[in-house]
Design a protein around this nucleic acid. Sequence first.
DNA 1: TAGGCCATCTGGTCCT
DNA 2: AGGACCAGATGGCCTA
Length: 237
Amino acid sequence: MPAPLETRISDLDCASSSGSDLSGFLTDEEDCARLQQAASASGPPAPARRGAPNISRASEVPGAQDDEQERRRRRGRTRVRSEALLHSLRRSRRVKANDRERNRMHNLNAALDALRSVLPSFPDDTKLTKIETLRFAYNYIWALAETLRLADQGLPGGGARERLLPPQCVPCLPGPPSPASDAESWGSGAAAASPLSDPSSPAASEDFTYRPGDPVFSFPSLPKDLLHTTPCFIPYH
DNA sequence: TAGGCCATCTGGTCCT
DNA sequence: AGGACCAGATGGCCTA
């Protein structure tokens, strides 16, 4: 059985709105305040103050208990008011959900910005779109793993990262997963799950081809001028 | 002006 | 029950 309307309304958290731009709608605080005001107006009468005489409205208005039409009108007004309150309640919850959703998307965008910041830099005034950022990061990881794998195949003794990547690329790279950060340990996991054997890897897609010595980022949706200003993807000789 | 990208709103579904 | 997540809809802005 649902809680009484006035109880649910009083439970509303009125302090959580972020002051968002909701032109045309009530803010959360406004909604809550209005709901609570309406609830106090239409809810059951407040408990009598201690010592105050407990006198009902009906007894205040002699003859009102006999007026069936008046009671019916009051019931109708109460029902309409309750429906309006429920509508406002839904509205208030919707506004709060919108607020959370907005915040969630902001967090997602912040994560995308963080991802952009660790990808090799493009010209400062160029910002990758969301889909480009994800594709780029995917290819970037794949290419690093593939470069290490090929390098470690052809260059015994490891150290492929240092040999293959120019010094300016080092700040671009995410750190290795463990403190033992030699090329073998860094690349072994990727080699074990080689992108070449993965049908979802760029190498397995007809859109992507990778040959040693090629610039490895060549997915078609990225503008060519961006690709050619990428500093980090040509194997270092 | 069409198309791409983005932010926001919204209702449904899943999870805790 | 409430929050997180998701996908669709919508409108604004920008660019070719």
